[in-house]
Amino acid sequence: MKNDIILAGVGGQGILSIAAAIGLAAVNSNLYIKQSEVHGMSQRGGDVQSHLRISDKPIASDLIPEGKADMIISVEPMEGLRYLPFLSNSGWLVTNITPYMNIPDYPDINEILAKVKSLKHHIAIDADSIAKEAGSSRASNIVMLGAASLFLDIPFERIEEGIRQLFGKKGDEVVQMNLKALRLGREFSEKNR
């Protein structure tokens, strides 16, 4: 079993919380993991990525080879497209549809979404609205994780466990809200895959 995942977003959007939750779930499932991330200059509003690799066998490279990623999880639609060279022919792009416009020449969002929808395997989800429905717009990354969870070879219960571990300190209310966000994300993928 092997899941190679590119996480994409803009510096400050918190893609690493998704990586942390999947990482915990993987470790709890006794899987091998390597996860590389970007620190430094690009965290100031630039494009950021993380390579997350999970396997039942030891993993060699910290970087995913081009054309081999099983999934791109992107919390921003244009950023998801930036890593298409990494996505395998059978891989999934799971992306939020809310643009993050911090550059003057941000393209027409309709053009971006049209490109996303032209891909054979895609989930385009309004994670921000679904997060609000779950109780807090800050949970949009967890909605994304829920949407992506359908394509991970990790039991859903393990991911729920990871969420409980990650947010346990913040109290039961926060845990329940994030679990709801996670489930709503997953339901969206089940209906729209």
């Binding site: 054309g67 930036r82 298409l84 060279p85 996505l87 395998s88 941000y106 053009e111 490109k115």
Partner: peptide, 13 residues
């Protein structure tokens, strides 16, 4: 293996 090229619509950030 090769994935798809980066679409033209993607701008530098």
């Amino acid at each position: 293996a090769e994935g798809q090229p980066i679409p033209d619509v993607v701008k530098n950030r």
